[in-house]
Design a protein around this nucleic acid. Structure first.
Lengths: 224, 224
DNA sequence: TAGATTGTTAATCGATTAACAATC
DNA sequence: TAGATTGTTAATCGATTAACAATC
Protein backbone atom coordinates (compact mmCIF):
# COMPACT_ATOMS: atom_id res chain seq x y z
CA UNK A 1 0.00 0.00 0.00
CA UNK A 2 2.83 2.38 0.76
CA UNK A 3 4.81 3.76 -2.16
CA UNK A 4 7.85 1.55 -2.59
CA UNK A 5 10.17 4.27 -3.82
CA UNK A 6 9.54 7.77 -5.07
CA UNK A 7 6.53 8.08 -7.36
CA UNK A 8 7.29 10.51 -10.16
CA UNK A 9 4.92 13.16 -11.34
CA UNK A 10 4.60 11.53 -14.74
CA UNK A 11 3.64 8.24 -13.14
CA UNK A 12 1.18 10.00 -10.87
CA UNK A 13 -0.56 11.64 -13.80
CA UNK A 14 -1.05 8.28 -15.48
CA UNK A 15 -2.63 6.56 -12.48
CA UNK A 16 -6.12 8.02 -13.09
CA UNK A 17 -5.86 6.80 -16.69
CA UNK A 18 -5.34 3.27 -15.46
CA UNK A 19 -8.21 3.62 -13.04
CA UNK A 20 -10.67 4.83 -15.63
CA UNK A 21 -9.54 2.19 -18.11
CA UNK A 22 -9.91 -0.57 -15.52
CA UNK A 23 -13.38 0.68 -14.61
CA UNK A 24 -14.44 0.57 -18.25
CA UNK A 25 -13.68 -3.17 -18.51
CA UNK A 26 -16.53 -5.73 -18.48
CA UNK A 27 -17.84 -6.68 -15.03
CA UNK A 28 -16.85 -10.33 -15.43
CA UNK A 29 -13.25 -9.71 -16.49
CA UNK A 30 -10.80 -11.07 -13.91
CA UNK A 31 -7.20 -10.37 -14.94
CA UNK A 32 -5.42 -8.08 -17.35
CA UNK A 33 -1.83 -7.90 -18.56
CA UNK A 34 0.34 -4.80 -18.76
CA UNK A 35 0.49 -5.36 -22.51
CA UNK A 36 -3.28 -5.05 -22.84
CA UNK A 37 -3.41 -1.92 -20.68
CA UNK A 38 -0.54 -0.38 -22.61
CA UNK A 39 -2.02 -1.15 -26.00
CA UNK A 40 -5.36 0.32 -25.05
CA UNK A 41 -3.90 3.53 -23.66
CA UNK A 42 -1.15 3.93 -26.22
CA UNK A 43 1.65 3.44 -23.71
CA UNK A 44 4.71 1.21 -23.40
CA UNK A 45 4.06 -2.06 -21.49
CA UNK A 46 7.23 -1.69 -19.43
CA UNK A 47 6.13 1.79 -18.45
CA UNK A 48 2.79 0.43 -17.28
CA UNK A 49 4.49 -2.22 -15.15
CA UNK A 50 6.88 0.35 -13.70
CA UNK A 51 4.04 2.72 -12.88
CA UNK A 52 2.03 0.00 -11.19
CA UNK A 53 5.06 -1.32 -9.31
CA UNK A 54 5.92 2.20 -8.14
CA UNK A 55 2.77 2.33 -6.04
CA UNK A 56 3.13 -1.23 -4.80
CA UNK A 57 0.88 -3.10 -7.21
CA UNK A 58 1.68 -6.77 -7.67
CA UNK A 59 1.00 -8.83 -10.76
CA UNK A 60 1.40 -12.54 -11.33
CA UNK A 61 3.62 -13.86 -14.13
CA UNK A 62 1.59 -15.55 -16.87
CA UNK A 63 -1.65 -14.20 -15.36
CA UNK A 64 -1.33 -10.43 -15.16
CA UNK A 65 -2.99 -8.16 -12.62
CA UNK A 66 -6.22 -8.79 -10.74
CA UNK A 67 -8.51 -6.09 -12.13
CA UNK A 68 -10.64 -5.66 -9.05
CA UNK A 69 -7.71 -5.58 -6.67
CA UNK A 70 -5.70 -3.24 -8.88
CA UNK A 71 -8.56 -0.76 -9.23
CA UNK A 72 -9.02 -0.65 -5.49
CA UNK A 73 -5.30 -0.41 -4.88
CA UNK A 74 -4.80 2.52 -7.25
CA UNK A 75 -7.76 4.50 -5.95
CA UNK A 76 -6.65 3.80 -2.39
CA UNK A 77 -3.19 5.04 -3.25
CA UNK A 78 -4.53 8.25 -4.77
CA UNK A 79 -6.85 8.98 -1.88
CA UNK A 80 -4.66 7.60 0.90
CA UNK A 81 -7.44 5.12 1.59
CA UNK A 82 -9.75 7.76 3.00
CA UNK A 83 -13.08 9.32 2.06
CA UNK A 84 -13.04 13.07 1.85
CA UNK A 85 -15.90 15.44 2.45
CA UNK A 86 -16.42 18.15 -0.13
CA UNK A 87 -18.64 21.21 -0.24
CA UNK A 88 -19.71 22.85 -3.47
CA UNK A 89 -20.45 26.53 -3.97
CA UNK A 90 -22.44 27.70 -6.98
CA UNK A 91 -25.30 25.54 -8.13
CA UNK A 92 -25.37 26.45 -11.81
CA UNK A 93 -25.27 23.80 -14.51
CA UNK A 94 -21.67 22.89 -13.77
CA UNK A 95 -22.29 22.79 -10.03
CA UNK A 96 -25.26 20.50 -10.48
CA UNK A 97 -23.29 18.28 -12.85
CA UNK A 98 -20.45 17.86 -10.37
CA UNK A 99 -22.75 17.32 -7.40
CA UNK A 100 -24.38 14.40 -9.16
CA UNK A 101 -21.21 13.10 -10.85
CA UNK A 102 -20.30 9.52 -9.99
CA UNK A 103 -16.63 10.07 -10.83
CA UNK A 104 -16.14 11.99 -7.59
CA UNK A 105 -17.37 9.08 -5.55
CA UNK A 106 -15.14 6.74 -7.56
CA UNK A 107 -12.09 8.56 -6.24
CA UNK A 108 -13.35 8.75 -2.66
CA UNK A 109 -14.96 12.18 -2.59
CA UNK A 110 -18.44 12.86 -1.29
CA UNK A 111 -20.20 16.18 -1.79
CA UNK A 112 -21.80 16.73 1.62
CA UNK A 113 -23.26 20.22 1.25
CA UNK A 114 -24.07 22.69 -1.52
CA UNK A 115 -24.28 26.49 -1.34
CA UNK A 116 -25.51 29.31 -3.53
CA UNK A 117 -25.76 33.06 -3.14
CA UNK A 118 -29.04 33.14 -5.03
CA UNK A 119 -31.78 33.40 -2.38
CA UNK A 120 -34.29 31.90 -4.82
CA UNK A 121 -32.31 28.64 -4.73
CA UNK A 122 -31.60 28.54 -0.98
CA UNK A 123 -33.84 26.01 0.70
CA UNK A 124 -34.60 24.09 -2.47
CA UNK A 125 -33.38 20.53 -2.94
CA UNK A 126 -30.99 19.03 -5.48
CA UNK A 127 -29.66 15.46 -5.61
CA UNK A 128 -30.43 14.89 -1.95
CA UNK A 129 -28.97 18.18 -0.76
CA UNK A 130 -30.81 21.22 0.51
CA UNK A 131 -29.18 24.33 -0.92
CA UNK A 132 -27.76 26.56 1.82
CA UNK A 133 -27.02 30.28 1.93
CA UNK A 134 -23.51 31.69 1.93
CA UNK A 135 -23.60 32.66 5.61
CA UNK A 136 -23.68 28.95 6.44
CA UNK A 137 -20.55 28.16 4.42
CA UNK A 138 -17.89 28.62 7.10
CA UNK A 139 -19.73 26.90 9.98
CA UNK A 140 -20.83 23.96 7.82
CA UNK A 141 -17.31 23.45 6.46
CA UNK A 142 -15.99 23.34 10.00
CA UNK A 143 -18.73 21.06 11.21
CA UNK A 144 -18.24 18.60 8.32
CA UNK A 145 -14.46 18.91 8.54
CA UNK A 146 -14.58 19.34 4.79
CA UNK A 147 -11.29 18.74 2.98
CA UNK A 148 -12.32 19.92 -0.48
CA UNK A 149 -14.11 23.10 -1.56
CA UNK A 150 -15.47 23.17 -5.09
CA UNK A 151 -15.92 26.60 -6.68
CA UNK A 152 -18.41 26.79 -9.55
CA UNK A 153 -19.36 30.45 -9.26
CA UNK A 154 -18.75 33.33 -11.71
CA UNK A 155 -15.18 34.62 -11.63
CA UNK A 156 -16.05 37.81 -9.74
CA UNK A 157 -17.23 35.80 -6.74
CA UNK A 158 -14.48 33.20 -6.84
CA UNK A 159 -11.90 34.89 -4.59
CA UNK A 160 -14.30 35.77 -1.74
CA UNK A 161 -15.71 32.24 -1.88
CA UNK A 162 -12.18 30.86 -1.78
CA UNK A 163 -11.44 32.96 1.30
CA UNK A 164 -14.53 31.63 3.05
CA UNK A 165 -13.60 28.04 2.21
CA UNK A 166 -10.11 28.57 3.61
CA UNK A 167 -11.61 30.06 6.77
CA UNK A 168 -13.82 27.00 6.95
CA UNK A 169 -10.71 24.83 6.97
CA UNK A 170 -10.63 23.14 3.56
CA UNK A 171 -7.24 21.96 2.36
CA UNK A 172 -7.98 21.74 -1.36
CA UNK A 173 -9.77 24.37 -3.44
CA UNK A 174 -11.01 23.01 -6.76
CA UNK A 175 -11.53 26.08 -8.89
CA UNK A 176 -13.72 25.93 -12.02
CA UNK A 177 -13.92 29.69 -12.43
CA UNK A 178 -11.51 31.50 -14.72
CA UNK A 179 -10.25 33.66 -11.86
CA UNK A 180 -6.70 33.21 -10.65
CA UNK A 181 -7.03 32.60 -6.92
CA UNK A 182 -4.63 33.37 -4.13
CA UNK A 183 -4.65 31.28 -0.99
CA UNK A 184 -2.41 30.89 2.05
CA UNK A 185 0.55 28.52 2.13
CA UNK A 186 -0.43 24.91 2.52
CA UNK A 187 -3.73 25.29 0.69
CA UNK A 188 -3.74 23.48 -2.66
CA UNK A 189 -5.50 25.44 -5.38
CA UNK A 190 -6.37 23.20 -8.30
CA UNK A 191 -7.46 25.33 -11.23
CA UNK A 192 -9.56 23.42 -13.71
CA UNK A 193 -9.45 24.58 -17.30
CA UNK A 194 -12.08 22.37 -18.78
CA UNK A 195 -11.40 23.14 -22.44
CA UNK A 196 -7.61 22.77 -22.15
CA UNK A 197 -7.62 19.07 -23.01
CA UNK A 198 -9.78 19.76 -26.05
CA UNK A 199 -7.29 22.38 -27.18
CA UNK A 200 -4.49 19.81 -26.86
CA UNK A 201 -6.52 17.32 -28.88
CA UNK A 202 -6.87 19.91 -31.63
CA UNK A 203 -3.14 20.47 -31.63
CA UNK A 204 -2.67 16.72 -32.02
CA UNK A 205 -5.11 16.65 -34.92
CA UNK A 206 -3.15 19.39 -36.63
CA UNK A 207 0.16 17.55 -36.30
CA UNK A 208 -1.52 14.42 -37.67
CA UNK A 209 -2.56 16.34 -40.75
CA UNK A 210 0.94 17.73 -41.25
CA UNK A 211 2.71 14.42 -40.71
CA UNK A 212 1.74 11.10 -42.21
CA UNK A 213 -1.80 10.31 -41.08
CA UNK A 214 -1.92 7.73 -38.30
CA UNK A 215 -4.23 6.76 -35.48
CA UNK A 216 -3.94 8.21 -32.03
CA UNK A 217 -5.81 8.13 -28.76
CA UNK A 218 -4.94 10.53 -26.00
CA UNK A 219 -6.71 10.34 -22.73
CA UNK A 220 -7.05 12.45 -19.65
CA UNK A 221 -4.70 15.03 -20.98
CA UNK A 222 -1.64 12.82 -20.81
CA UNK A 223 -0.42 11.52 -24.13
CA UNK A 224 2.09 8.81 -24.80
CA UNK B 1 3.44 31.56 -35.79
CA UNK B 2 4.92 28.26 -36.94
CA UNK B 3 6.65 26.10 -34.33
CA UNK B 4 10.33 26.88 -34.54
CA UNK B 5 11.54 23.43 -33.63
CA UNK B 6 9.80 20.43 -32.19
CA UNK B 7 7.33 21.24 -29.43
CA UNK B 8 7.54 18.61 -26.71
CA UNK B 9 4.55 17.07 -25.07
CA UNK B 10 5.48 18.57 -21.72
CA UNK B 11 5.63 22.02 -23.23
CA UNK B 12 2.34 21.47 -25.02
CA UNK B 13 0.62 20.55 -21.77
CA UNK B 14 1.77 23.77 -20.16
CA UNK B 15 0.51 26.07 -22.91
CA UNK B 16 -3.11 26.09 -21.67
CA UNK B 17 -1.78 26.99 -18.21
CA UNK B 18 -0.12 30.06 -19.62
CA UNK B 19 -3.27 30.96 -21.52
CA UNK B 20 -5.53 30.74 -18.51
CA UNK B 21 -3.06 32.62 -16.33
CA UNK B 22 -2.72 35.40 -18.92
CA UNK B 23 -6.50 35.65 -19.19
CA UNK B 24 -6.81 36.05 -15.42
CA UNK B 25 -4.61 39.17 -15.43
CA UNK B 26 -6.18 42.63 -15.09
CA UNK B 27 -7.54 44.15 -18.30
CA UNK B 28 -5.15 47.09 -18.20
CA UNK B 29 -1.95 45.07 -17.73
CA UNK B 30 0.36 45.45 -20.72
CA UNK B 31 3.49 43.35 -20.28
CA UNK B 32 4.60 40.45 -18.13
CA UNK B 33 7.97 38.81 -17.51
CA UNK B 34 8.74 35.11 -17.59
CA UNK B 35 9.72 35.44 -13.92
CA UNK B 36 6.25 36.63 -12.95
CA UNK B 37 4.55 33.89 -14.97
CA UNK B 38 6.84 31.26 -13.50
CA UNK B 39 6.36 32.43 -9.93
CA UNK B 40 2.61 32.45 -10.25
CA UNK B 41 2.43 28.97 -11.78
CA UNK B 42 5.19 27.42 -9.68
CA UNK B 43 7.49 26.85 -12.65
CA UNK B 44 11.08 27.70 -13.53
CA UNK B 45 11.47 31.02 -15.42
CA UNK B 46 13.85 29.50 -17.96
CA UNK B 47 11.31 26.78 -18.63
CA UNK B 48 8.64 29.38 -19.28
CA UNK B 49 10.88 31.23 -21.74
CA UNK B 50 11.76 27.97 -23.49
CA UNK B 51 8.14 26.96 -23.75
CA UNK B 52 7.11 30.30 -25.17
CA UNK B 53 10.05 30.39 -27.57
CA UNK B 54 9.26 26.86 -28.77
CA UNK B 55 6.00 28.07 -30.30
CA UNK B 56 7.54 31.23 -31.70
CA UNK B 57 6.65 33.76 -29.00
CA UNK B 58 8.90 36.80 -28.80
CA UNK B 59 9.61 38.84 -25.69
CA UNK B 60 11.55 42.05 -25.30
CA UNK B 61 14.54 42.27 -22.95
CA UNK B 62 13.82 44.53 -19.99
CA UNK B 63 10.11 44.63 -20.88
CA UNK B 64 8.86 41.07 -21.02
CA UNK B 65 6.04 39.73 -23.19
CA UNK B 66 3.07 41.65 -24.52
CA UNK B 67 0.16 40.03 -22.69
CA UNK B 68 -2.45 40.59 -25.35
CA UNK B 69 -0.22 39.44 -28.18
CA UNK B 70 1.02 36.42 -26.28
CA UNK B 71 -2.48 35.26 -25.35
CA UNK B 72 -3.57 35.47 -28.97
CA UNK B 73 -0.41 33.79 -30.17
CA UNK B 74 -0.72 30.82 -27.83
CA UNK B 75 -4.41 30.23 -28.55
CA UNK B 76 -3.71 30.57 -32.27
CA UNK B 77 -0.94 28.02 -31.96
CA UNK B 78 -3.18 25.56 -30.13
CA UNK B 79 -6.05 25.88 -32.56
CA UNK B 80 -4.02 26.41 -35.72
CA UNK B 81 -5.68 29.79 -36.00
CA UNK B 82 -9.04 28.33 -36.90
CA UNK B 83 -12.51 28.19 -35.36
CA UNK B 84 -13.93 24.73 -35.01
CA UNK B 85 -17.56 23.71 -35.03
CA UNK B 86 -18.65 21.33 -32.31
CA UNK B 87 -21.84 19.40 -31.70
CA UNK B 88 -22.92 18.20 -28.28
CA UNK B 89 -24.95 15.09 -27.52
CA UNK B 90 -26.69 14.70 -24.17
CA UNK B 91 -28.23 17.79 -22.62
CA UNK B 92 -28.01 16.84 -18.97
CA UNK B 93 -26.41 19.14 -16.40
CA UNK B 94 -22.93 18.57 -17.79
CA UNK B 95 -24.10 19.02 -21.37
CA UNK B 96 -25.80 22.29 -20.49
CA UNK B 97 -22.74 23.48 -18.58
CA UNK B 98 -20.43 22.82 -21.54
CA UNK B 99 -22.80 24.34 -24.08
CA UNK B 100 -22.82 27.60 -22.16
CA UNK B 101 -19.16 27.48 -21.11
CA UNK B 102 -17.05 30.44 -22.24
CA UNK B 103 -13.83 28.44 -22.02
CA UNK B 104 -14.70 26.61 -25.23
CA UNK B 105 -15.00 29.86 -27.14
CA UNK B 106 -11.71 31.04 -25.63
CA UNK B 107 -9.90 28.21 -27.40
CA UNK B 108 -11.72 28.66 -30.68
CA UNK B 109 -14.55 26.15 -30.36
CA UNK B 110 -18.19 26.94 -31.00
CA UNK B 111 -21.00 24.57 -30.09
CA UNK B 112 -23.24 24.82 -33.15
CA UNK B 113 -25.87 22.18 -32.40
CA UNK B 114 -27.12 20.13 -29.44
CA UNK B 115 -28.84 16.75 -29.47
CA UNK B 116 -30.69 14.57 -27.00
CA UNK B 117 -32.47 11.24 -27.21
CA UNK B 118 -35.15 12.41 -24.77
CA UNK B 119 -38.18 13.34 -26.90
CA UNK B 120 -39.43 15.63 -24.12
CA UNK B 121 -36.37 17.83 -24.68
CA UNK B 122 -36.35 17.78 -28.47
CA UNK B 123 -37.65 21.05 -29.86
CA UNK B 124 -37.01 23.02 -26.65
CA UNK B 125 -34.42 25.78 -26.53
CA UNK B 126 -31.24 26.10 -24.49
CA UNK B 127 -28.61 28.85 -24.72
CA UNK B 128 -29.69 29.81 -28.21
CA UNK B 129 -29.89 26.25 -29.51
CA UNK B 130 -32.98 24.26 -30.35
CA UNK B 131 -32.49 20.70 -29.11
CA UNK B 132 -32.55 18.19 -31.96
CA UNK B 133 -33.37 14.49 -32.08
CA UNK B 134 -30.77 11.78 -32.62
CA UNK B 135 -31.87 11.08 -36.20
CA UNK B 136 -30.62 14.55 -37.14
CA UNK B 137 -27.12 13.95 -35.72
CA UNK B 138 -25.36 12.56 -38.80
CA UNK B 139 -26.85 14.98 -41.37
CA UNK B 140 -26.31 18.04 -39.16
CA UNK B 141 -22.68 17.06 -38.45
CA UNK B 142 -22.06 16.76 -42.16
CA UNK B 143 -23.85 20.00 -42.95
CA UNK B 144 -21.93 21.94 -40.28
CA UNK B 145 -18.67 20.18 -41.16
CA UNK B 146 -18.31 19.69 -37.43
CA UNK B 147 -14.80 18.87 -36.22
CA UNK B 148 -15.60 18.06 -32.59
CA UNK B 149 -18.28 15.82 -31.12
CA UNK B 150 -18.93 16.17 -27.39
CA UNK B 151 -20.43 13.14 -25.64
CA UNK B 152 -22.27 13.86 -22.39
CA UNK B 153 -24.61 10.87 -22.39
CA UNK B 154 -24.78 7.91 -19.96
CA UNK B 155 -22.11 5.32 -20.61
CA UNK B 156 -24.46 2.80 -22.21
CA UNK B 157 -25.25 5.21 -25.04
CA UNK B 158 -21.72 6.52 -25.50
CA UNK B 159 -20.43 4.03 -28.10
CA UNK B 160 -23.44 4.27 -30.44
CA UNK B 161 -23.30 8.07 -30.19
CA UNK B 162 -19.59 7.94 -30.95
CA UNK B 163 -20.28 5.83 -34.04
CA UNK B 164 -22.83 8.34 -35.28
CA UNK B 165 -20.43 11.23 -34.74
CA UNK B 166 -17.73 9.41 -36.69
CA UNK B 167 -20.21 8.74 -39.50
CA UNK B 168 -21.02 12.44 -39.40
CA UNK B 169 -17.35 13.19 -40.04
CA UNK B 170 -16.04 14.58 -36.75
CA UNK B 171 -12.28 14.29 -36.20
CA UNK B 172 -12.24 14.64 -32.41
CA UNK B 173 -14.54 12.87 -29.95
CA UNK B 174 -14.55 14.50 -26.52
CA UNK B 175 -15.87 11.81 -24.23
CA UNK B 176 -17.26 12.70 -20.79
CA UNK B 177 -18.86 9.31 -20.22
CA UNK B 178 -17.01 6.61 -18.32
CA UNK B 179 -17.22 4.23 -21.26
CA UNK B 180 -14.02 3.27 -23.08
CA UNK B 181 -14.73 4.10 -26.72
CA UNK B 182 -13.35 2.54 -29.85
CA UNK B 183 -13.08 4.59 -33.01
CA UNK B 184 -11.41 4.18 -36.41
CA UNK B 185 -7.81 5.19 -37.08
CA UNK B 186 -7.35 8.90 -37.42
CA UNK B 187 -10.16 9.80 -35.03
CA UNK B 188 -8.87 11.33 -31.80
CA UNK B 189 -10.77 10.14 -28.73
CA UNK B 190 -10.17 12.45 -25.79
CA UNK B 191 -11.51 10.82 -22.66
CA UNK B 192 -12.23 13.31 -19.92
CA UNK B 193 -11.96 12.07 -16.36
CA UNK B 194 -13.24 15.09 -14.54
CA UNK B 195 -12.29 13.97 -11.02
CA UNK B 196 -8.78 12.84 -11.98
CA UNK B 197 -7.18 16.19 -11.26
CA UNK B 198 -8.86 16.31 -7.88
CA UNK B 199 -7.47 12.88 -7.08
CA UNK B 200 -3.98 14.15 -7.96
CA UNK B 201 -4.49 17.17 -5.73
CA UNK B 202 -5.36 14.83 -2.86
CA UNK B 203 -2.20 12.85 -3.46
CA UNK B 204 -0.23 16.09 -3.30
CA UNK B 205 -1.92 17.03 -0.05
CA UNK B 206 -0.92 13.67 1.41
CA UNK B 207 2.73 14.06 0.45
CA UNK B 208 2.68 17.55 1.98
CA UNK B 209 1.49 16.08 5.24
CA UNK B 210 4.21 13.44 5.18
CA UNK B 211 7.02 15.80 4.21
CA UNK B 212 7.74 19.20 5.69
CA UNK B 213 4.68 21.37 5.14
CA UNK B 214 5.10 23.91 2.34
CA UNK B 215 2.91 25.78 -0.09
CA UNK B 216 2.01 24.42 -3.48
CA UNK B 217 -0.25 25.26 -6.37
CA UNK B 218 -0.86 22.81 -9.15
CA UNK B 219 -2.98 23.76 -12.06
CA UNK B 220 -4.65 22.09 -14.95
CA UNK B 221 -3.28 18.73 -13.97
CA UNK B 222 0.30 19.62 -14.76
CA UNK B 223 2.47 20.23 -11.76
CA UNK B 224 5.91 21.71 -11.63
C1' DT C 1 25.90 53.48 -18.88
C1' DA C 2 23.82 50.15 -15.80
C1' DG C 3 20.50 46.96 -15.12
C1' DA C 4 16.81 43.99 -16.13
C1' DT C 5 15.20 40.85 -18.95
C1' DT C 6 15.15 37.60 -23.00
C1' DG C 7 17.42 33.94 -25.52
C1' DT C 8 20.85 30.11 -26.03
C1' DT C 9 24.38 26.72 -25.15
C1' DA C 10 26.02 23.19 -22.10
C1' DA C 11 25.37 20.28 -18.05
C1' DT C 12 22.40 17.88 -15.09
C1' DC C 13 18.72 15.37 -13.99
C1' DG C 14 14.93 12.27 -14.61
C1' DA C 15 11.94 9.35 -17.39
C1' DT C 16 11.54 5.97 -20.94
C1' DT C 17 12.93 2.04 -23.21
C1' DA C 18 15.67 -2.12 -24.15
C1' DA C 19 17.54 -6.30 -22.58
C1' DC C 20 17.16 -9.89 -19.62
C1' DA C 21 16.27 -12.43 -15.34
C1' DA C 22 12.66 -14.30 -12.37
C1' DT C 23 8.34 -16.51 -11.79
C1' DC C 24 4.48 -19.45 -12.20
C1' DT D 1 8.85 -28.48 -19.62
C1' DA D 2 7.77 -24.51 -22.41
C1' DG D 3 5.84 -20.27 -22.67
C1' DA D 4 3.86 -16.12 -21.17
C1' DT D 5 4.12 -12.68 -18.22
C1' DT D 6 6.03 -9.79 -14.39
C1' DG D 7 9.95 -7.44 -12.37
C1' DT D 8 14.62 -5.27 -12.56
C1' DT D 9 19.02 -3.54 -14.14
C1' DA D 10 21.40 -0.83 -17.53
C1' DA D 11 21.32 2.21 -21.53
C1' DT D 12 19.11 5.67 -24.05
C1' DC D 13 16.60 9.47 -24.62
C1' DG D 14 14.49 13.81 -23.51
C1' DA D 15 13.40 17.55 -20.38
C1' DT D 16 14.92 20.71 -16.94
C1' DT D 17 18.11 23.69 -15.03
C1' DA D 18 22.39 26.39 -14.68
C1' DA D 19 25.49 29.54 -16.65
C1' DC D 20 26.09 33.09 -19.62
C1' DA D 21 25.63 35.92 -23.77
C1' DA D 22 22.62 39.19 -26.18
C1' DT D 23 19.51 42.95 -26.10
C1' DC D 24 17.22 47.13 -25.13
Amino acid sequence: MLPQHHVSNCTLQRLPLYVSFLRSLPEDARNISSTEIAKSLGLNPVQVRKDLAAVGSKGRPRVGYDIHWLTGHLTAYLSGGEEYSAVLVGLGNLGRALTAHSSLADYGFAVKAVFDSNQALVGSWFAGHQVQGMHKLVPVCQQLQATVGIITVPKEQAQPVCDLLVTGGVRIVWNFSTAHLTAPQGIIVQDEDIAASLALATRQMLSQQQASPHSATIQGGVSA
